[in-house]
Design a protein around this nucleic acid. Sequence first.
DNA 1: ATGTGTGCAAAAGCTTTGCAATAAA
DNA 2: TTTATTGCAAAGCTTTTGCACACAT
Lengths: 151, 151
Amino acid sequence: MSKAHPHSPRTLESQDSLFLRAMSMLKESGYKRTMHRETLVRFFIMNPGPLTTEDIQTRTDGLDKVTIYRSLASFESLGLLRRIDFGDGLLRYELNLNDEEHHHHVICTQCGKVDVVHHCEVSAISQIETQTGYRSIRHSLEFFGLCPQCQ
Amino acid sequence: MSKAHPHSPRTLESQDSLFLRAMSMLKESGYKRTMHRETLVRFFIMNPGPLTTEDIQTRTDGLDKVTIYRSLASFESLGLLRRIDFGDGLLRYELNLNDEEHHHHVICTQCGKVDVVHHCEVSAISQIETQTGYRSIRHSLEFFGLCPQCQ
DNA sequence: ATGTGTGCAAAAGCTTTGCAATAAA
DNA sequence: TTTATTGCAAAGCTTTTGCACACAT
C-alpha cells in the first residue's frame, strides 16, 4: 500500500555529507549516537520520499517498531525529519535537511505511488498534470498556526 | 481538543433549503430517510466547520458512534459531506453542498480553533496572517490523483 | 415482505507508555 | 557511573466488522 518512490537519486558525495550533517545534529542536541539511529538516518538518505514505520521496519533488519517510533519522533523534533500526512492514518516521515527544498507530493489514489511536486500553488494543478501525468487531481491544503488568543 | 468554530452563520431560509437538498440527495441515491440521518444533516447545517465523530456524539442526543461512522461514510460517498484531515488521526467532516464554496482552514496548534481560509494559494500566507490574526503559519499541501499507470 | 439501518460487542489498526535490561558518554 | 536508549508486553485510541433486531419503503 505504501510504496516509497525514489524521487531523485543522490550522489555518494551528497549522501555522505547528509549523513555527517545528521550525526552532528544529533550530537549537538545531546542525543547519543547509536547503531539504530545511524541505520535510520542512512535509510532515509537512501530512500527519498515519505516513509511509513512499516516501510522502515520491513526494509531494515527488523528494527523494533517502538524504537522506530521513538527515534522518528526525536528526529522530527530536531528538524532532521519532517512529518507528512496523506490522510490515511499512517505516520510518514521524510528527510528535512537544509538542502532539501520545500515541496509537496502527488499520491496515486489507486496504487499509492508518490511523486514530488515543486509547486506550492494550487492553481498550478494543470501544470502538475502535464508534468507528472497524474489525472483527476484533488488537493488537501490546511494551515496551522497560533490564533490571536494563543499568541 | 476539537472545537468547532462557527465560520459564518446561516439564515433560516438557507438552512431549510440545504436540508431539503440533502434529503433529496439521499432519496435519489436510494438511501432511506431515518431520524438519525435527519439529525445528522441538521447538525452539520447548524454547525459549519469540520466536525469529529466525538463532536457529533456529545452534541446530539447520544447517537451511537457506529451509526455516526456509517452515516458519515455514506454521506461522503454521496458528496453531501467532505472529509477533512488535520493530520491528528481524527476523521472530520464538513458540509459539501454546492453553494459551499471551496475553502481551506487555519487550525490553531495550541487551542484547536478552526477558521476558514478562502485563498487556495500558499503564497498568500501573509494575507492570511493579516486577515485572520494567526501567526507562525505552516501549511500542509498534498495532491491526490491517478498516476499514469493507473489511468 | 424485503432489504436497509441500527446498536451492541468485539476485532483491528496504528501509536504510545511502563519498566527492566542494555548500551553510550 | 550516570543517563539515555532499547525491547517486550501491555495499554490507548479511533475506526471497522459481525450479527441479530428494528425500521423504512
